[in-house]
Design a protein around this nucleic acid. Structure first.
Lengths: 253, 253
DNA sequence: GAAGTCCGATTGTCCTGACAAATCCTTGAC
DNA sequence: GTCAAGGATTTGTCAGGACAATCGGACTTC
């Protein structure tokens, strides 16, 4: 008699070979859903790869590929000689290149944007260095004040290489900058961020409805597309009383 | 005649089959080194996988596995029908679970630590929730002031589940908490962080040699090991005038 | 009873082979 | 001259098999 395995309680996974969605991806999605809704409880074993493969009519490499994607996401952990376990993670928000607009909207906050500036100007030394263009090159400058529930949340200043995007003010007020960039067919790849804090100047305090000297959260970000070209350089100020950055990160293997 | 490929200028990669280091890992390291030292220039193609495999005496899956690790690191990008390209990335610091001690030491700053408290106490509701233990359970509390070049940098308050680690004050002053945790055989897996800002209280200002009301960078972090168990909960204060968080992140595929 | 040893189970690594999908470049038609 | 069609190239997906490394438990031995 073989020893009892966790496989008896496994949800009935299945794959659709007529679908254009890769088989490993279908399986990965079903596994993730099963973890999410509690069908696979934290700490439980997944059953060995070979059984899982034969049961689904898949090859072992395909099953491994599915499992690997979830390991990369931090949902599963594999141990040689033991098996693959569901990790009891309290939270599973991956760190992603998020936009403030999307963050607020996802939180049901109905963000609004007021465009304070939207024009082309020569790049300063700092902006030129960040975007990787010669100093003095024309770059687009966008300055916005973002609010939620009528309360100012952040003061956003962005520089973009000229010619990349010609955002009209109306669209800037209706959506987020990242959405417009993605909508222009640019695939974002990575970003470099610096997060700090400093006291508000009188002008900044006025804009953000804070007092002069109030602590502000600062974030500078340069975003690159998949060719390594800088797409955007932003210098943002957030009201520390209303906003903080929250994210999860995994230890590099 | 076949069209000219970039392979002619490729460094002479080679693998050692007698080594216990996996073949794909050997290749990945050599590729990364070649990118790092400029032997593989940004934007250049890597040459197709099949050629690379036959040239090295490896199978295509092995070569693909090597390439994939670098794609995951954001160094390479693959395009079907085109090939694998070296990304011109301005920076290549991956986001990792870093410790302030290691960060400072890596920057050549010679960090010093003064232990202000190191004892066991009952968990408050907030600490208990973060560590996933019942309220009132005994937890270890460590309070430290970290300085570099004699200047205070950060005020660190950590809570650890009792029994996990019994840090003596001398060792805490000589090294970082994360090193002690890893040294105890615990493998760190993930962390959840919140970064914000607020004004310094009078007591905090005194400790950090700032003025009352000065902006401070706050960071709360709960760290989990590979079983999903909370290992540490920290509430840290950094002098905004001396410290900021800098990191790179990749867009989830 | 405690400690060391063996063995089964499971993942890790690697191979060969095949076809599909996407991209780019050339060729051809209008 | 411009646009469309087609072929070559390259990565994406999937199969099936083989052996090694590691873990945990059971067994044996002291």
């Amino acid at each position: 008699m073989s020893k009892p395995s966790a496989s008896a309680s496994l949800p009935p996974f299945s794959v659709d070979r007529t679908s254009p969605v890769p088989l490993y991806f279908q399986l990965a999605q079903q596994l993730e859903a099963a973890i999410e809704n509690g069908a696979l409880t934290p700490g439980s074993l997944l059953g060995n790869e070979i059984d899982l493969a034969t049961r689904l009519g898949l090859s072992r490499p395909t099953v491994r590929q599915a499992i690997q994607t979830l390991v990369d996401k931090g949902l599963l952990i594999r141990r040689r000689g033991v098996g693959t376990q569901v990790l009891h993670s309290q939270v599973r928000r991956p760190l992603e290149l998020s936009s403030l607009y999307d963050d607020l909207e996802a939180a049901g906050q109905h963000p609004t944007t007021r465009v304070l500036a939207n024009h082309v100007e020569p790049a300063t030394a700092r902006v030129a260095a960040a975007l990787g263009v010669p100093e003095g090159t024309d770059v687009r400058y966008v300055e916005r004040l973002r609010a939620a529930h009528g309360e100012p949340m952040a003061y956003l200043r962005n520089h973009l290489p000229a010619g990349l995007l010609e955002p009209d003010t109306a669209r800037l007020e209706a959506t987020g900058l990242y959405r417009m960039v993605r909508g222009a067919g640019i695939t974002l790849h990575s970003a470099r961020q610096t997060v700090g804090a400093r006291a508000a100047t009188a002008a900044e305090a006025e804009l953000l409805a804070e007092e002069e000297g109030a602590p502000l959260l600062t974030m500078e970000r340069t975003t690159y597309d998949d060719t390594g070209r800088a797409v955007e350089f932003g210098s943002h100020l957030y009201r520390a009383s209303r906003y903080s950055f929250e994210f999860q990160l995994l230890v590099r293997a």
